[in-house]
């Protein structure tokens, strides 16, 4: 398969058999994606709600426990995600203009950001915490006499639960972006227009929004 990076080799106006025209197809996809994002909001809603309930209950402990996280690392990750969100928006912009090279570059940058996010999270947060025994479960160790071990463990459960769920979404995003980039690069017939990019973009922006709320709640507020 010859790969040309200069122009989008797309068939014009491919409409699936259940649709009447392109506009209907596009709008249907956008609504479907948003309906799915509603479910995603509710997914994370549970994690946020648990956090709010327990923080309400154990406010002073939670304030103390937030010191366990470094706002600098969280801040860098926030900025990385904002950048990646921007580059996805840009990718959609270029795909709409059928500029293949730029689209691929933007998507590649996004993927790089997502990867960086995960690497930073692993290297500077998860692994050190794991080594200290600061993870929920049988191996949990705790040596701060001012905070009961069980509440620390509860807090770590929330932290790992929420950021883990978010990290899983990032991971899924990386996989999907890679597949999309490959398909765009080889002019796969399934990529008939910019909609796949836009759909994936919507997903990625949502992942970004989750982090926008997660960051101040876990890293910043109690200072």
């Amino acid at each position: 398969m010859a790969i040309s990076l200069n122009k989008m080799n797309q068939p014009q106006d491919v409409v699936y058999e259940q649709f009447e025209d392109l506009a209907q197809q596009q709008e249907t996809y956008v609504i479907g994606m948003w309906a799915f994002l509603v479910t995603e909001v509710m997914f994370f809603g549970v994690m946020f709600m648990s956090y709010v309930v327990y923080r309400w209950k154990y406010q002073p402990y939670f304030y103390a426990l937030h010191q366990e996280l470094d706002w600098r690392i969280g801040g860098i990750n926030t900025f990385i995600l904002l950048l990646s969100s921007f580059s996805v928006a840009l990718a959609v912009h270029f795909h709409q203009k059928k500029k293949k090279m730029q689209t691929l570059a933007c998507l590649g940058f996004t993927n790089l950001c997502a990867l960086a996010f995960l690497v930073i999270k692993m290297l500077f947060e998860y692994i050190p915490k794991w080594n200290h025994g600061h993870y929920p479960g049988p191996g949990f160790t705790w040596d701060n006499p001012n905070i009961p071990g069980n509440i620390a463990q509860l807090w770590y459960s929330l932290y790992f639960g929420t950021t883990g769920l978010h990290g899983l979404h990032v991971l899924i995003g990386i996989i999907l972006f890679s597949v999309l980039m490959f398909m765009i690069a080889v002019d796969h017939p399934a990529i008939t227009d910019y909609l796949p990019t836009e759909m994936l973009g919507l997903y990625w922006h949502f992942v970004d929004i989750v982090w926008i709320f997660l960051y101040p709640l876990y890293y910043l507020m109690p200072k």
């Binding site: 709008e27 956008v30 609504i31 809603g45």
Partner: peptide, 13 residues
């Protein structure tokens, strides 16, 4: 419609 759905999840949360 899209605007409504965009708001729906957050309102319902």
């Amino acid at each position: 419609v899209v605007k409504t759905y965009a708001a729906l999840g957050f309102v319902w949360f």
